[in-house]
Design a protein around this nucleic acid. Structure first.
Lengths: 229, 229
DNA sequence: ATGACCTTATGGCCTTACCAATTTCACGCC
DNA sequence: GGCGTGAAATTGGTAAGGCCATAAGGTCAT
């Protein structure tokens, strides 16, 4: 089991949590005005800077809204948006099953539509992955790019959202595991490149069924890798 | 068309834009260390506070990562889809397509497994919906419960996450539309109850194919309702 | 040579204090 | 009663400084 720091060194994280809870508990409802920054700081026994950082973070999450010279207002309750940090600990098999469902459908759809421009971009993504591997970069950024680009090529923005979410969910969770297998991960990544290429080729020829199957094989391989370790 | 202010009153927005561009242009690549906060502030001709707010925002967007006592590091190129605010406004057809994909698979899986306890809960959810409708409650809470419960019954926690996310995405977006059709929404909701019941009955008898088809019919009906209005 | 330990420089994190810009609202004037 | 006006409230931004975590490099004993 990985050892996690007992205490977040960043104050604004704790403040975000408190404010989130304050809103979720119904203490402040959408439309309500929050106490002034200075009062919040005083009550939380911190200075204004981290309070403002927390409010900026919540503004980005669409939970609050700051009006100059007026105050901070609750916009909506911080509910079940796709916040990776709030759903840590999903079983890996569940994540992979979802990826198979979503990404196979995407591969099928992209192959069926067959847009030349997107095919070129996809080819570049596959080769960028191979390049990174040759140069010894093993951070998985190119791997992510391929899956994300394919999702965007589907033309469905929500599909792209889901793929990004599932990717982060999987890799956030297995970060340490992936780090731990630095010894023998090279052949695994080389296989991934081949499997990506297989998906690409099926998409390029417009063979929807083969694209779907290639993606399924790829993801089931990934599942096996993760579940074995 | 709403008229937007020509000038953001918030400095940290402008700083986020500049830093984003700096990273997108390749000036700083993933893994690189950014200049110290103090130097950034000096070069941008602002004080450190808004710089830190911008960095906090970028950290939330997963673009940079701050390491205490070390520095700020680029994590990955700012990806337009990672912008939380841009997640708003997904095309309704995209949302519905994703729901069809995910929820049909769920219905199929639940029917195939056929857990008695879950079937009972599902039956209660369907009837709770019918009850609410009879009593004139039209907030759609019971509707949501049915879909969410079915997702949980699949045994896959990630499926439940996805259904909750897609539901909120759809209903956040069409809040006003749904509110606007208070006049003739009753027959529509009564149809939903019948369709939910159809899904339930297929699940109860363990007929996976019919469960999937019933769910597909239901969601395609929902899609039609939303897209027509 | 190697590994544990200390020192120092760097840089993020937080506080305090202060000033400027904006919005709201009540008050007084016409 | 309507309408400027100015005070109060509140956010936005600046400046300076102390504290503490981290990294790098040197020292020393093993």
């Amino acid at each position: 089991m990985p050892i996690t720091p007992v205490k977040s060194t960043k104050l604004y994280h704790l403040i975000v949590e408190q404010l989130k809870q304050l809103i979720q508990s119904g203490e402040y409802r959408p439309g309500d005005k929050l106490p002034p920054e200075r009062e919040l700081a005083q009550r939380l026994r911190v200075s204004r800077a981290p309070v403002r950082e927390a409010l900026v973070a919540l503004e980005l999450l669409d939970v609050v809204e700051g009006r100059v010279g007026d105050g901070w207002f609750v916009k909506r309750a911080p509910d079940s948006s796709l916040d990776v940090s709030s759903v840590e600990g999903r079983p890996p098999s569940d994540i992979l099953q979802a990826r198979v469902l979503v990404e196979c459908a995407i591969a099928e759809q992209v192959a069926a539509h067959h847009d030349d421009e997107l095919v070129v971009g996809l080819h570049q993504a596959v080769e960028a992955f191979a390049d990174e591997l040759r140069r010894g970069q093993l951070n998985g950024e190119a791997d992510r790019s391929f899956h994300l680009l394919l999702a965007r090529a589907s033309g469905n923005a929500v599909f792209a959202d889901l793929v990004a979410y599932l990717w982060d969910l999987q890799n956030g969770q297995f970060f340490r595991l992936v780090e731990g297998m630095t010894g023998n991960e090279r052949p695994r990544l080389e296989r991934y490149v081949r499997e990506h290429r297989a998906v690409y080729e099926a998409v390029e020829t417009g063979d929807a069924g083969r694209a779907r199957d290639a993606m399924r094989i790829h993801l089931e391989g990934v599942a096996k890798d993760l579940l074995d370790s």
